[in-house]
Design a protein around this nucleic acid. Structure first.
Lengths: 150, 150
DNA sequence: TATTGTTATACTCTATAACTATA
DNA sequence: TATAGTTATAGAGTATAACAATA
């Protein structure tokens, strides 16, 4: 097999990984009454603390209109509330509820559990190379994205 | 850092990979006038040859209704046609057009190009360990999915 | 005049349920 | 009676554009 063919084969394998990982993620979140997009917003809130929808839109790289919809859904289901912004009456402070905080805490647990499931017992050097390679591939993809965007 | 923490960190990195890979994929397909779902259907058709919507629904793991929508979109944009099934007048044979065949051929090229971009120049042992680790992780995720489904 | 978030509108993917045509 | 695919309906995520309230 040529180098190019082996690389192409690896791309297919990564695509497989993306698909099954996404499916696993969606299934787990569905049990919690969440979607991937809503969970991503929740996670940003957990990292940043209460913030405006504008900030969330930029962090998630979606339009303000999309954030309106996501926050609507999360508020209806009790994960967040819209609070008055302390200084700017145009803006809202999206804030995690107690339920929202419990949920984001469970994300961290779930991640640890999944880590054991995926990597537990893997040979040390394989795991190390895997982590390094993933980081390198992410960097290269990001660089490509920046070029394409420019 | 404990083993569990390192594993959890690796899960985060894989999540990053899933996100940027998906974004890259979507952007490339958008240029071709396709979505991820439609491209997946096109790829199945390329692999299987003309087949019924029922078969496509099972292959893609979606409902027949969803396939109706995907085929509608692909037919409108000229990638496939609905042909009469040779023996069963209830069924349709979804078939790639010339444009559809050109497009799926371009997928293979694009995959090779992306492979060079992501892995070109990577140390040989790193690449080998990466491929093996990805395969192992996919297997473990699949096993977990089967358990959850049962 | 610029910014924040909304309403209005539209498209895609997804699902369930009822229905038609055919097997 | 069972199967292939459709229409009907609904919900989620996404986008652009026009608009209101506020800065």
């Amino acid at each position: 097999m040529s180098g190019t063919d082996r690389y192409a084969e690896a791309v297919s394998q990564v695509l497989e990984l993306v698909v099954v990982f996404n499916d696993d993620l969606s299934r787990g979140l569905d049990d919690a009454g969440l979607t991937v997009s809503r969970a991503a917003l929740l996670w940003e809130l957990e990292q940043r603390g209460p913030c405006t929808q504008r900030v969330l839109a930029e962090a998630l790289d979606v339009t303000p209109r999309t954030v309106t919809g996501l926050v609507d859904g999360l508020a209806e289901t009790g994960f967040v509330t819209r609070e008055a912004h302390p200084t700017d009456r145009r803006a809202t402070h999206v804030t995690l509820t107690e339920q929202g905080r419990r949920t984001t805490a469970a994300f961290a647990e779930g991640r640890a559990r999944l880590g054991e499931q995926l990597f537990g017992g893997m040979a040390e050097d394989r795991f190390a190379h895997f982590c390094a390679a993933v980081a390198e591939v992410v960097d290269r993809l990001r660089a490509a994205t920046r070029e394409a965007g420019a």
